[in-house]
Amino acid sequence: MIRALAISAWFQTVIFVRLRQAMFFTIVFPAFLFVVFGFIFGTPGDTEYYLFLMTGVAGATALSDGLFAVGPVVREFYNNGFIGYVRQMPHPSAHVGGLFLSRYIVLFVVVLLLMLISLLFFGATPTPEATLRLLLAIAVGFTAFSIIGLAISFIGDRMDNGKGFGNVLYFVVIFTSPAFYPIDLINPTVARFGDFLPLTPILHFARNEAVNWWPLIVWGAVSLPVYLYSLKTRQIKR
């Protein structure tokens, strides 16, 4: 099983590298965003801001990948018959497991890339503890966002609008969370709204701030059954 998972993850990573759009939004765009925001809003020597921005960009990338890179792919696995095809094979769950593992690896690479940019462009380096905290936050966040993405994709599949729901959620979360700016200082009302959305606790955890996990737990607890129910009822649909 471990070998099957590793092989699946390897080839999923190969597929990812060949998808220009995925490469752009997961690697190039976050790096570009970090550099541009860092130069516009950062002050030389203000390490705190650069690390704040780095965790925000990493969190936003995990959100984007979770919502758009797993749910639609798994939905497509079902729609094009791939799941039925591999069900007869050994370790069928390793195919989807490999997709997840591949995305974790890619996101960890993104974090390392952001840290490198932070060091080279802004001279800011997180401590080992902060680095571990960020990686853990990204892993937890990506898992939760993926479950939400799966639910949205399978519901959207019925309404032919999976991408639309995902886009709305993505932009609402990004603009109401403290991903790129301290929203609670700019507009406390919007910040209170953002506190109920799933990215905020991930960012607070990554930044070693006080965390209220409940919004994330509720989002996951609602999304998982919705996804499983959509999957089950989808199977008997013809």
Binding site: F11, V14, I15, R18, L19, N80, G81, F82, G84, Y85
Partner: peptide
Amino acid sequence: SDVVPLFPML
């Protein structure tokens, strides 16, 4: 199956 559902990018 009639349609072979494999990885397009491999």
